[in-house]
Computed example of a mutant assay.
Amino acid sequence: MLLNDKLKPYRLLLASQSPRRRELMTGCGLPYEPAPKYDCEEVYPADLPAEEVPLYLSQLKSRAWPGPLAPDVILLTADTVVVLDGEVLGKPCGREEAVGMLGRLSGRRHTVVSGVTLRTAERMHSFEARTSVWFRTLSAEEIEHYVDTCRPFDKAGSYGIQEWIGYAAIERIEGSFYNVMGLPIQKVYVELDKFLDQ
């Protein structure tokens, strides 16, 4: 049975304000509803390894859902971070920080890690995806052009692979392209299919 047929008795709620995640869910043909925005303080233990942060935060977001889940609801929460030298590069606070982050990523390999949690009223399942990304060396002028043109202030690591920088600066990737956009949609599809079979 196709996944979309298995989903017919359920309401799949995507708890994310990210337009890119919504675009990926739509592109994959998954019948989802955007969940209403709710409060979740995205904090994690200081000693948590950087690569484990997204999984932790996806579970935190899931548990922060206000009230019990209805029996027919599947809640999908996700978090994506850029990891360089064992450090999480989150969303930049402004232009200067964005330029600085891209200067650090220039000419180097980094890892994009996403954590995803699926939860119903009765059970929860979490998984992750990792993608390695190689940037060529960028000039200061190129970095400033990208930041001023695309204003990547809502993006982990200060860049979006689907924007100019993805075309002009990324030499290669290993792993899911869509993970770098913010959601490993192929793995979401497969894990959701297995989740419904349990």
Rank of each mutant, 00 (worst) to 15 (best):
L3K: 13
L3D: 12
L7T: 15
Y10T: 12
Y10E: 07
L12N: 14
L14D: 06
L14W: 12
L14A: 14
A15Q: 14
S16M: 08
Q17T: 15
S18E: 06
P19I: 01
R21A: 00
R21C: 01
R22N: 05
E23D: 15
T26L: 07
C28A: 08
P31K: 02
E33R: 12
A35K: 13
A35M: 05
A35Y: 11
A35L: 07
P36K: 06
P36M: 06
Y38T: 12
Y38K: 09
D39L: 06
C40V: 10
E42Q: 08
Y44F: 13
P45D: 04
P49C: 11
E51C: 12
E51I: 14
E51Q: 13
E52W: 00
V53T: 14
Y56W: 11
L57W: 03
S58N: 08
S58Y: 03
K61S: 04
K61I: 11
K61C: 06
K61P: 12
S62N: 11
S62D: 05
R63C: 00
P66N: 01
P66A: 00
L69P: 08
L69F: 05
L69Q: 03
L69Y: 04
D72Q: 14
D72W: 10
V73Q: 12
L75W: 05
T77E: 00
V83I: 14
E87D: 07
L89A: 09
P92W: 04
P92Y: 02
P92N: 07
C93K: 14
R95K: 08
R95A: 03
E96R: 08
A98T: 05
V99E: 05
G100A: 02
L102F: 10
L102C: 09
R104D: 10
R104N: 13
L105S: 09
R108A: 05
R109A: 05
H110C: 09
V112L: 04
V112Q: 04
V112W: 03
V113D: 03
T117G: 01
R119H: 11
T120E: 06
A121T: 11
E122A: 05
R123P: 09
R123T: 15
M124I: 08
E128T: 14
E128A: 08
A129F: 15
R130Y: 12
T131V: 12
S132Q: 03
V133Y: 02
W134P: 09
W134G: 05
F135M: 06
S139A: 10
A140P: 14
I143E: 00
I143M: 02
Y146P: 10
V147M: 10
C150K: 13
R151N: 10
P152A: 01
P152C: 01
F153D: 13
F153P: 10
A156F: 09
G157K: 08
G157F: 07
G160I: 13
I161Q: 02
I161C: 03
I161M: 04
Q162N: 10
E163F: 06
W164V: 09
Y167A: 15
Y167H: 15
A169T: 15
I170Y: 15
I170E: 06
E171K: 15
R172V: 12
E174Y: 13
G175M: 01
G175E: 00
G175Y: 02
Y178D: 00
Y178A: 00
N179G: 03
V180L: 00
M181K: 05
P184G: 02
P184A: 02
I185E: 02
Q186K: 11
K187R: 08
Y189K: 05
Y189E: 02
L192P: 13
D193K: 10
D193G: 09
K194E: 13
D197C: 10
Q198G: 12
